[in-house]
Design a protein around this nucleic acid. Structure first.
Length: 926
RNA sequence: GCCGAAGUGGCGGAAUGGCAGACGCGAUGGACUCAAAAUCCAUUGUCCUCAACGGCGUGUGGGUUCGAGUCCCACCUUCGGCACCA
């Protein structure tokens, strides 16, 4: 019974592709190259999720299309396999993360292969493989051996670092310390994000609203000596080079905002110390034009000068406040964002332009890590300062004249603002600078300050250096040795390993448990950690690298994955880079993409890669939600309308009184749409909630690709994921939708195969007869549409076009091969198993993977006659059938000859006729 | 609060400023069948009790245009991102 049975054809072709290495990529310079990349997955224990194959299918379709279109295609896959879950599992069960990781990778590979993707499996990489992380460590050493030359705007070898004369004179230790302070990888004692639950510190990018991005655990700030990467040196280039790449504007914007460039000035105020001395107090401002309006200053509670500035009577208050804020987590600080807090130090400073004496406060709304950790407060023109000034009754001086409209709107007067005016305008109350426009004034005041040595132009970035060490086991060890003195204490001298010593393998451990304190578990491997070399004793660096390290450069290793001598061959790099198309989730818009761009630029500066940017074009696939859910609500067994309920998918509560109520999952038969809302069919006054939710284990709405493949086959899963809607859109899953595309594939199958025959064989209806004109026209129209849609990544509409063509062929008594063969070829990227099967049934012996892509013949695209609407006063009143390509005059004549048109025009005059050839006729009547 | 994206049938969605709703799902009717499944055919935005090259219809209100889902202005809703960065 030869009906369409994916289970009997898909494994066969998958085995064929893998065992014959059909998709092995060999560099072939006679063809143009195309490097198409997926963001490689973290192989989790729960296996593939239908979200993964969405992007993978899109890239696979394009990879197969490009191969047929004559490109030399590189399309690899691998594993981002370092990371917490395997380690947590090890803590719970004692299973080595290596074992868990391997199991998970095998499962992921099996699942991915069961979907028929055309990856070159000979290029698979695994970030936890020592052959791979050898080169991750090597790149770390490169960062360690590089300094940033701000003049040349370029990373250079550390050996080329100019040593200032006085440093050189101070001896070897001074030179070493100076050099270490310039490296792109450096150690510093800074307040870090410590997550006790995860037992590790986290980068700023990994902390969201004071909680860990992974797992949502609380994060507190503690000072710790940690490895950092000097990504801030590349801030400017990371912004500027975004202009070179074709990425979604939203992603570029997010990166720009994350880097957060702001131009302004550094200004020195003179603080009068209670001890009698004076000290320069430096602030950063983007609005030097409002300097005359600075009525007080604020230091962050952590600022170095706080102790020196605090007067005796304020001592207790300041100490209490600092104590309070230091114990606050970031979360609490943001929670309290609504009300401003702060304490007066008791001291004053002199405003450098007005000479006025202004009070110095401390407050936690000023961040220690940004700018200079101190601000001049201009309450009239800064919202936060305004709020603070109102809270503590500090003076407010307007120095930029608001527009009359603004004053009227906010109910303010020049001397009594109701809110801060943060726009630009005419400068007032500012001595010699009065009357200038803010923008001009900005430059003038900065010049004035610079001339007197009181300030200068300055650019600041929100971006911080990248905290690069983690107190975990399952990550790349740092290839560094700390020299110890005889007493076993670090001398501060660091010895990098030689390339020949790499990879530095992770030691075996019995106990992976984090201590709850920031001491890395690698410390437990005492034998591994201690190294004797050249008569000296060293302790290995015990931190490991964060998960991002391996994913920062994997796209390069794919190009030359087995190379034992280099991270990749420069000739191959030159051939394949940049990545032409990179597809992945929007959640990596900042983290991964920013980090890998940074590494790439360092590699570029040091001459190891040929391109400044790694990813030419980026596309984010949208999220796939679970099936649509309809929910009704009941309070003590009585229905409650959704309009009276607060509900976000969890526990429903009454809007009035917040009482918890019951939710009832409803089937479609029980509800109907009434106006804008769904209501109960039985009780139409009761509205119900309808939504699709993010897939999650706890909701129980996760779709497992294995189940879909088992029921409908890989081709149906692939086709459905592409047919759901635009790739970038968020869209809900529907099993019925999968069934729909499965039926389409069944219909395609039956175009070729007699359903009721005994064996799988070409149906007698498939003939060598020539196809009729209409069929040929449709075929070429479909080829054209599918080709255009592939180029524009509009997979959903490409599939509809093929459905229309199949619908045209279905009722035909004979199916000419000339109408079928090209159809199989254009279907192949989407449903490769079915296409290969049909291709071989058509008598072909070779895989169709490298068959030339069909070309639409423009001559065949034109229809003989077309139906054209005739509008009268903008409304369609008739349709006329005319030969294609008629001139405007002829079209108008044809329209006027139509009896319906004549009836409509009875007694009216035509004022104007708009005629679009082959499209429409619009007659405007008087 | 700020920034961005999106609002089109019962549902997913389609439409270079030119016939709104392609294609698919669902639904209804029919054919095949002893029956069912599968398949095939037809209908399916809505209202006027039926039909119409009738009216209405792309979140709401305005505007530009011969013509607006598409362009402009204002607003509403949903989803993402940012949120004391001076």
């Amino acid at each position: 019974m030869p009906s369409y049975l994916p289970a009997s054809i898909e494994p066969k072709w998958q085995a064929h592709w893998v065992s014959n290495k059909i998709f092995k990529t060999v560099t072939d310079t006679s063809k143009p190259k195309y490097y198409i990349l997926d963001m490689f997955p973290y192989p989790s224990g729960s296996g593939l999720h239908v979200g993964h194959p969405e992007g993978y299918t899109a890239t696979d379709i394009l990879a197969r299309y490009k191969r047929m279109a004559g490109f030399n295609v590189l399309h690899p896959m691998g594993w981002d396999a370092f990371g917490l879950p395997a380690e947590q599992f090890a803590i719970q069960t004692g299973t080595h993360p290596r074992v868990t990781t391997e199991t998970n990778i095998n499962n992921f590979r099996r699942q991915i292969q069961s979907l028929g993707f055309s990856y070159d499996w000979d290029r698979e990489v695994d970030t936890t493989d020592p052959h791979y992380y050898k080169w991750t460590q090597w790149i770390f050493l490169l960062l360690y051996g590089t300094w940033y030359d701000a003049q040349a705007k370029k990373g250079r070898p550390i050996a080329e670092l100019p040593i200032p004369a006085e440093t050189a004179a101070a001896g070897d230790n001074a030179i070493r310390e100076y050099t270490d302070s310039k490296r792109l990888a450096f150690q510093a004692e800074i307040p870090v994000n410590w997550c006790a639950t995860l037992g590790t510190v986290l980068a700023n990018e990994e902390v969201i609203d004071g909680k860990s991005e992974r797992g949502n655990h609380p994060v507190v700030r503690i000072p710790l000596k940690q490895w950092q990467l000097r990504i801030t040196e590349y801030a400017e280039r990371l912004i500027d080079d975004l202009d070179m790449v074709e990425w979604p504007d939203s992603v570029k914007k997010m990166q720009r905002e994350w880097i957060g460039k702001s131009e302004g000035a550094e200004v020195d105020f003179t603080a009068e110390l209670p001890s009698g001395g004076r000290e320069a107090l430096r602030v950063f401002t983007t609005r030097p034009d409002t300097l005359f309006g600075a009525t007080y200053m604020v230091l962050s509670p952590e600022h170095q000068l706080v102790d020196a500035l605090t007067t005796a009577p304020q001592k207790d208050a300041v100490a209490t406040y600092r104590e309070l804020t230091s114990r606050k987590s970031d979360l609490e600080r943001t929670d309290l964002a609504k009300t401003k807090t702060g304490v007066f130090t008791g001291s004053f400073a002199i405003n450098p332009v007005s000479g006025g004496k202004i009070p110095i406060w401390i407050a936690d709304y000023v961040l220690s890590g940004y700018g200079t950790g101190a601000i001049m407060a201009v309450p009239a023109h800064d919202e936060r300062d305004f709020e603070f000034a109102k809270t503590f009754d500090l003076p407010i001086i307007t120095v930029v004249k608001p527009t009359d409209a603004w004053l009227a709107k906010t109910g303010s007067t020049l001397d009594a603002l109701t809110e801060a005016y943060s726009e630009t305008g005419e400068v007032i109350h500012s001595g010699d600078f009065n009357g200038l426009d803010s923008l001009v004034c900005k430059a003038k005041i900065t010049e004035w300050l610079a001339a007197r040595g009181l300030g200068k132009k300055r650019i600041n970035y929100k971006l911080r250096d990248w905290l690069f060490s983690r107190q975990r086991y399952w990550g790349e060890p740092f290839p560094l040795l700390h020299e110890l003195d005889e007493a076993g204490n670090p001398t501060g001298r660091i010895e990098p390993l030689e390339v020949t010593d790499l990879p530095l393998m992770l030691p075996k451990l019995e106990d992976y448990k984090p201590s709850g304190r920031p001491e890395p578990p690698l410390g437990k491997a005492t034998e591994w950690a201690t190294v004797k070399k050249n008569g000296k004793t060293y302790r290995r660096e015990l931190n490991t690298m964060p998960q991002w390290a391996g994913s920062c450069w994997y796209y390069l290793r794919y190009i030359d994955p087995k190379n034992p001598n280099a991270f990749l061959d420069p000739a191959e790099e030159n051939r394949w880079m940049p990545v032409d198309l990179y597809v992945g989730g929007a959640e990596h818009a900042v983290l991964h993409l920013l980090y890998s761009r940074f590494w790439h630029k360092v590699l570029f500066d040091r001459g190891h890669v040929s391109q400044a940017e790694p990813f030419q074009k980026l596309v984010n696939q949208g999220m796939i939600l679970g099936e649509m859910e309809y929910t009704g609500f009941k309070d003590s067994n009585a229905w409650v309308s959704a309009k009276d309920v607060e509900f976000d998918g969890g526990t429903p509560r009454l809007k009035k009184g917040q009482k918890e109520i019951e939710k009832v999952t409803l089937t479609e038969e029980l509800i109907e749409k009434k106006g804008e809302f769904f209501v109960l069919r039985e009780k139409p006054e009761i509205r119900v909630d309808s939504r699709a939710y993010k897939m999650s284990k706890s909701r129980g709405n996760v779709i497992n690709p294995d189940d879909v493949v088992e029921q409908f086959g890989a081709d149906s899963l692939r086709l459905y994921e592409m047919f759901m809607g635009p790739l970038e859109a968020t869209k809900p899953w529907s099993m019925r939708g999968v069934e729909g595309v499965f039926r389409f594939l069944g219909r395609v199958w039956r175009l070729f195969i007699e359903d009721r025959a005994e064996a799988v064989a070409l149906s007698p209806a498939v003939t060598n007869d020539p196809a009729d004109k209409e069929t040929l026209r449709l075929l070429h129209k479909t080829i054209q549409k599918v080709t255009d849609d592939l180029d524009g990544m509009r997979f959903n509409t490409a599939i509809s076009a093929m459905m229309e063509y199949a619908n045209h062929l279905t009722p035909m008594a004979t199916k000419p091969k000339e109408a079928l063969e090209p159809f199989v070829l254009i279907l192949a990227p989407f449903a490769p198993h079915l296409a290969e099967e049909l291709w071989s049934l058509l008598g072909q012996t070779k895989t169709l993977a490298y068959e030339p892509w069909p070309k639409a013949d423009p001559a065949l695209l034109v229809a003989d006659s077309i139906e054209i609407p005739v509008q009268i006063a903008g409304k369609v009143r008739a349709r006329i059938t005319v030969p294609a390509g008629l001139s405007q005059e002829a079209l108008q004549a044809a329209a006027l000859a139509d009896p319906k048109v004549q009836a409509q025009l009875e007694g009216k005059t035509i004022k104007k006729a708009i005629i679009v050839p082959d499209k429409m006729v619009n007659l405007v009547i008087g």
